[in-house]
Simulated assay, not measured.
Amino acid sequence: MVELFIHTRAGLGELFAADAASRRGIMQQMYADGLVLCEPAGAATRIKQQHAEEALREGPGALAPATVESRRYALTDELDGLVDAADAVERLVVANVALSTADLLFDHRRAWTGSGKWLSRRLLQADPEHGGAQLVQADEDTGRDVIHRFNEFGLAWLDPQWAGALHMPGAT
């Protein structure tokens, strides 16, 4: 199967900018991994090397500090809610905790995010040693263990200055 993408340079720049703003890097990945079939004057190779591959290496820009604080608060709120989870349905919130943790990891590592199968791929790219651990903790029988494990290493793993579990915006 072959997919053909045809873009103007200006249009491609707009697509790259939109993907950078969404922190997903979809078009950058497609152009970096894609096979160039025809390229007059080497333009496609230059775009691939100078724009797509470089953008993937650099990763998205840093989130604003207020956004990071807000996401940290949301994550600790989710963890706090999980402590009191009374049944399996409530413990499914573990999946949201994993996604919230992944968002913070992606920002801390200046890594591209993803969804579906790309979430696991991007987590492993961002942190080959620990990235997959965020996805294998959703078993309902281990929900409370996840909280304890996360409190032991979670926030410190994202950034050593965050060691110490629950955090409210503006608190130090």
Rank of each mutant, 00 (worst) to 15 (best):
W162Y: 11
S120R: 12
T142D: 12
L4G: 04
L82M: 13
E69R: 09
R9C: 09
W157N: 07
P40K: 14
A64G: 05
D87M: 07
T172H: 15
E54M: 07
V146C: 06
R144C: 03
F16L: 14
Y31L: 10
R9I: 14
Q49V: 09
T45A: 15
R121G: 01
A41Q: 15
E69H: 05
A18V: 05
A21K: 10
H130D: 09
Q28Y: 02
A102E: 03
P40Q: 15
E3D: 09
P160W: 12
S70F: 08
V68T: 09
A98L: 02
G114N: 07
L124Q: 10
R91A: 00
L155Q: 02
G132S: 04
D107W: 01
L124E: 12
A17N: 05
A86I: 10
A18Q: 08
A32T: 04
A171K: 05
C38G: 10
A171I: 04
D19L: 04
A156T: 09
L104G: 01
F150S: 02
Q137D: 06
L75C: 04
R57A: 15
L79R: 01
Y31N: 00
V94C: 13
E152M: 12
M168N: 05
A66H: 10
A52Q: 01
A62H: 08
I147N: 03
L79S: 02
I6H: 14
R91H: 01
N96K: 15
R57E: 12
D141L: 05
R71T: 05
Q49T: 11
G164Q: 00
G143Y: 12
Y73V: 07
M27R: 15
H51A: 08
E90Q: 15
E54L: 14
F106N: 03
R72H: 06
E14A: 11
E78D: 12
A44F: 02
I47L: 11
D19E: 06
G154Y: 00
S100V: 04
L124V: 15
L79W: 02
T67I: 11
R91S: 03
Q29D: 09
A156N: 08
V68W: 02
W112I: 03
L82N: 03
F150N: 06
A171G: 05
T45Y: 12
V136M: 06
A44T: 11
L104K: 02
G11M: 13
W118H: 06
H7W: 15
L82Q: 04
V94R: 11
Y31A: 05
I6R: 14
L63P: 00
T45W: 11
F153L: 08
S22V: 07
I147P: 01
I26N: 03
P40G: 13
M1Q: 09
G132R: 02
A98I: 07
M27E: 11
F106E: 01
R57V: 12
D141W: 05
M30Q: 13
L119T: 11
R121Y: 01
R9T: 13
E90V: 06
V146H: 03
N96V: 13
A32L: 02
Q50C: 06
M168A: 09
S22C: 06
A10D: 14
E3Y: 06
P169Q: 13
